[in-house]
Amino acid sequence: MISRFWHKNKIPLLFLSPWLIGVTILAFIPMIASLYLAFTNYNMLQAPTWVGLENFNTMLNSDSRFFQSLKVTFIYVFLGVPLQLIVAFSLATVLNRGVKGLSFFRAIYYVPSILGPSVAIAVLWRQLFGMEGIFNDFVSIFGLEPQSWISDPSTSLYTLIVLLVWQFGSPMVIFLAGLKQIPSDLYEAAAIDGAGPAYMLFKITLPLITPIIFFNLVMQIIGAFQAFTPAYIIGGGTGGTLDSTLFYTLYLYIKAFTQFEMGYASAMAWFLLVIIATFTGLLFLTARKWVHYQD
């Protein structure tokens, strides 16, 4: 059986082998290991000991920082992603109007998406919204008191959401491609029937672009749940003042590498997988109701 499979697929498998070996060693085996570790007490220096469901029990019943990290992450995802998509969509419609130098603007707007999750930008953000930052010069025009937006617990998370929204480039490019697919005769027909721009937006553009919205929503939500770098850099690796920027992944990192609780951190990682799978699954379930594919 195996030998027949091997005989038949020898050449494709050989060509695939670099990737196959990589994915097995670097992704598959560590994943299995972390699934095992999730049920153990493991400090990385001594052999893990089996504790059953204790990690999950502690996590859900007596870890206040865990719930803080969930709260922070949920606000980040469910406020940041929709905002980001609204900005991306609005700009895509503007660019779709046939602006001169379209490819230039498209490139310019795309740049933040490439730079976004990097350490350099996070450091820059820290400077922008810090006590001595440019943002304070800006708000002082409106007579507001300068403050440190990064370390004030009531504003710090929102600076990170702004950073997420600012990376609207990649969903924008996808929106733009989607907008270009909409046949122009639909708009012409609507115009003849006397439809205004708002009517066209809600009755033609949005329904026809729902598959793209759906795609962007799923991708960005998955990405946002896993955000790590901005919070790590801006909060100095600690989750910020009053844990106001303690992202889920950051807390996971703290558990694993500063508190030496790799077992607990593995449990958290698998729990995150469940959360993301749940929300993605929910999106797919509701998709039947609002996503219209052109057949």
């Binding site: 820290r126 810090g130 006590m131 403050q147 440190s148 990064i150 370390s151 004030d152 100095g236 003042t241």
Partner: peptide, 10 residues
């Protein structure tokens, strides 16, 4: 004040 101390830490 606390917010300045917090900023100073980093």
């Amino acid at each position: 004040p606390a917010n300045i101390s917090a900023e100073q830490a980093g």
